[in-house]
Amino acid sequence: MTVSKEKILEYLTEVKDPEIPVLDIVEMGIVRDIVVHNETLKIDITPTYSGCPAMKLIEDQIIAELHKKGFDDITINTVMSPAWTTDWMSEKTKQKLKSYGIAPPGRLSDDEFDPLNYVDKEVDCPFCESNETELKSEFGSTACKSLYYCNNCCQPFEHFKCH
């Protein structure tokens, strides 16, 4: 049985991000490389954050999914460099986040980051599109999100941090 790398990638779209189940691990940019050699698979994955508690679960789910497809010899490596960035998400992926109620990240190159001062930036409300929003906290329910409040539709929402 010879399987192409593309086919494996397609299988892996069945594995969802445990914290944002609307996205799969391929569109999140977590899968970095796949090497197929006869019936053995080597898969490189990268963590979104150093302490991401979902990584172990994602590894287990990759193995379970590929077992179902008939692969038994699977090695998963964690690679740190290049460091994962939200720039690896496509526009389509960002739209999915928005429909799910999470304001998507902007481009890293447009993000003015000063580690000593908060630089106010415009984040549109994913529900009503208003830019009358305010930051409540740079730390949210998971490491990748910050908390915002929309003063127009009076809804709290999460913003996927540009990272």
């Binding site: 963590p47 954050y49 150093s50 740190m80 460099s81 290049p82 460091a83 994962w84 980051f113 000063d114 580690p115 000593l116 001062n117 908060y118 740079e138 730390f139 490491a143 941090k161 990272h163």
Partner: peptide
């Protein structure tokens, strides 16, 4: 490891 961690630390410092 540092490349990943420094992105987190800038939020901690802020």
């Amino acid at each position: 490891i540092a490349e990943k961690a420094v992105k987190e630390d800038r939020y901690h410092l802020r």
